[in-house]
Every structure is written in structure tokens, then in C-alpha cells.
């Protein structure tokens, strides 16, 4: 049984790596073309190149974190974590990418929730990975305005931290189908995004290492993906 589990894990790591490599071509192509354009047009603002490079590096970092957590090469030290603070920090990390893609980023952390037990860096990396994929995905829709919301709310299973947009394609079925096709198809989430959607699978892998799962979720009238965590009243800081 252990051997079978090992084989499953190796296969899924390989497929995630294929998916990630495909995804990474995108920011590198952006850098390649933007650099070429800048060499012939005098432009002082190099922020596009900087943003594409940061996006690629962030994706690699988050992938590596998921890999190390899954292989237990990093201690999975759970601590009381404020979901609102994680979403705020994730929003800061995503703001440049959102600007680059013309997406308005909103934070909806109203409501008072007790802390959850989680690996803080892991949770933040998962939210940032999800956010970057969804920023890319929603900006390719035929709309005049694009908004992405980082939000938290309580559900019957605990406290949800997620990323939401006005896109009804964000369903449990899409996620299920994507998990089946990851690393095997160029666009495992074809109804959501034109890219490999690696951020979503990286988030899936990080959450899995933390014994959490990525789920399709609704927030008010928005659709999204998020993690459900159990809050603890004993950890309430007030």
C-alpha cells in the first residue's frame, strides 16, 4: 500500500511539475516580448517586466513550498492565524499583478472571526497562488470591468478564506475536472482560463499538505475557490 501511495505521489508531483512548467512559459514570454519592445521604444517604466518576473518567482516559490511541505522537508508548524491578516497580506502581494492585468482587487474581511489553526506561510502562499491564477483568468473574459475579491466568511464547517469573482464557471465540477486533467492537458481548466492554471493546482497541493482542501465556494453573489478551516474559540485573542 505504501508503495502504491508513493507511486501516486510521484505521479501527481510529476503532473504538477509539467503543469507548472507550462504555466511558467507565460511570464517568461511576457518578459521576452516586453524587453524586445523596450529596446526599440524609449520607455522609462519597466514595471511590466518587473511584475512578470515577480509573478514567475512567486509561482516557483509557492510550488517549492508545497513540495517541501508535502515531503515534510519543512516542519508543518501550525499556529493560530488570523484569516483577515493573511488575506490582507496576500492582497498586498497580488496588487501589482492585478494592476498589470487591469483587475480591481477588493478585500472583504468584515466580521469578527476567531483565529484558525494553520501554517501561516502555507495559507498565504495558497491564497496568492489562487489569486494570481484568477487574476489571469478573469481578465480574459469579455467584460469592461474585472474585480477579484479576497474574502472570508463563516460556513457550517468553519471559516472560509477564498478568492472570488463574478464568474459562474468557478464550480466544484470545474475543479474536479481540472484535477483529472492536470499535467495531461494544456488547459485543464479550459472554461476558466487560457493558461495551465498552475496557481490553482499549487494552492491545492499546499492546502493538501496542511490537511486542508481547496473547495468551490460562494461569497454573497460571487463564485470562487477557498479553504475551509476550523476556528477555535479557545484561541480567540480578545
Amino acid at each position: 500500500m505504501d508503495k502504491l501511495d508513493d507511486a501516486d505521489y510521484t505521479a501527481s508531483s510529476y503532473l504538477l511539475m509539467v503543469n507548472l512548467a507550462e504555466q511558467l512559459k507565460l511570464p517568461f514570454m511576457q518578459i521576452q516580448k516586453q524587453a524586445e519592445l523596450l529596446s526599440r521604444v524609449k520607455v522609462k517604466d519597466l514595471s511590466s517586466i518587473e511584475n512578470s518576473a515577480s509573478y514567475a518567482l512567486q509561482l516557483i516559490d509557492n510550488y517549492l513550498l508545497g513540495l517541501k511541505l508535502n515531503q515534510q522537508k519543512l516542519a508543518l508548524e501550525q499556529e493560530p492565524v488570523s484569516v483577515a491578516a493573511v488575506l490582507y497580506d496576500s492582497g498586498q502581494l497580488l496588487s501589482s499583478l492585478a494592476k498589470e492585468y487591469g483587475v480591481k482587487l477588493e478585500l472583504n474581511i468584515t466580521g469578527k472571526y476567531e483565529p484558525v489553526m494553520a501554517h501561516r506561510q502555507g495559507l498565504e502562499s495558497a491564497i496568492v497562488s489562487l489569486g494570481s491564477s484568477l487574476i489571469e483568468a478573469i481578465s480574459a473574459q469579455d467584460k469592461s470591468k474585472y474585480t477579484l475579491q479576497l474574502a472570508t466568511h463563516r460556513c457550517r464547517y468553519g471559516i472560509v478564506a477564498g478568492v472570488y469573482a463574478d464568474n459562474p464557471e468557478l464550480t466544484a465540477n470545474l475543479l474536479r475536472q481540472g484535477r483529472r486533467l492536470i499535467g495531461r492537458a494544456r488547459q485543464p481548466l479550459v472554461n476558466l482560463t487560457y493558461s495551465a492554471g498552475a496557481g490553482i493546482f499549487v494552492a491545492d497541493s499546499i492546502l493538501n499538505a496542511m490537511s486542508l482542501s481547496l473547495k468551490a465556494s460562494r461569497h454573497h453573489r460571487l463564485y470562487g475557490l477557498g479553504a475551509v478551516m476550523r476556528g477555535s474559540s479557545q484561541l480567540q485573542l480578545v
Binding site: 516586453q34 492585468y101 481578465s139 469579455d142
Partner: peptide, 24 residues
């Protein structure tokens, strides 16, 4: 992809073409 689209649009415009963008 928005950043790529903007880059291609700028390059093609500089080469003298009128460029319209579509993402879907």
C-alpha cells in the same frame, strides 16, 4: 493574455498597423 496583448499591440502599431484586440 493582457500583458502580451498590450505588447503585441504596441509593436504592431509602431510598425504602422491599426490593431483591434479580442480575448475570446
Amino acid at each position: 493574455d493582457k500583458p502580451l496583448a498590450k505588447t503585441y499591440q504596441a509593436a504592431l502599431r509602431k510598425a504602422g498597423h491599426k490593431v483591434k484586440l479580442a480575448s475570446t
